[in-house]
């Protein structure tokens, strides 16, 4: 059974770097944070790259590191991220470009979810992972994935409120 070498790491990053950065970007919300977290995750994987089996796909391993990093960093920075405003933020008004605004609002609301809930939604609806695969990446049960996805979507519906009317939900 062969082991992975340095060259395979370069190939892996070249092939899957974009996809991993997009996942990181959706889970972090900010591009700069996503790049930093992806570098950290890849560095962690690089430390043990030689011990990985050459016949198995390293992406689930790297993705799991990435998700764990995002969740733990989010917990650590939770206090710092709380920005107090002097007045409540303005509510978006309806306009002709409703769908575009709705997607923007949807992403804003997605960022406001908890890190774990956001990770579930990103893995389920962006990465198109099954509930079992999502549970494996997050290191939790399938039931937890189902409940987290359900609560996340419910919270999005609740926050979007009237904006969702055109969607027919």
């Amino acid at each position: 059974m062969g082991r992975r070498d340095d060259e395979s790491f370069v190939e892996f990053v070249a092939e899957r770097g974009d996809a991993l950065l997009r996942t990181a970007s959706l889970m972090c919300g900010a591009r700069q944070d996503a790049e930093d977290i992806l570098q950290t995750a890849l560095e962690k994987a690089y430390r043990h790259w030689g011990r990985l089996d050459a016949d198995t796909d390293p992406e689930p391993y790297v993705r799991r590191i990435l998700v764990n990093l995002v969740i733990s960093r989010s917990r650590r920075w939770k206090v710092l991220r709380e920005i107090h405003m002097e007045r409540p933020p303005e509510t978006p008004a309806h306009s002709g470009t409703h769908a575009v605004e709705l997607r923007g609002t949807l992403m804003d609301e997605l960022r406001r979810l908890g890190a774990r809930q956001r990770a579930v939604l990103v893995l389920r609806f962006w990465e198109d992972l099954s509930e079992a695969e999502t549970a494996r990446v997050l290191g939790c049960s399938v039931g937890t994935v189902k409940s987290q996805a359900s609560r996340g979507l419910a919270r999005l519906r609740e926050r979007l409120g009237a904006n969702l009317a055109p969607l027919g939900s």
């Binding site: 990053v13 970007s25 959706l26 790049e35 997607r103 949807l106 997605l110 519906r157």
Partner: peptide, 25 residues
């Protein structure tokens, strides 16, 4: 269009131009 589909579309739109830097490795 349901919320899940709209969420997928919003995510795709959000990361459309995102690419890893060439100096990542």
């Amino acid at each position: 269009m349901d919320l899940e589909s709209e969420l997928r579309a919003a995510m795709a739109e959000q990361v459309a131009g995102t690419a890893a830097p060439s100096s990542l490795v």
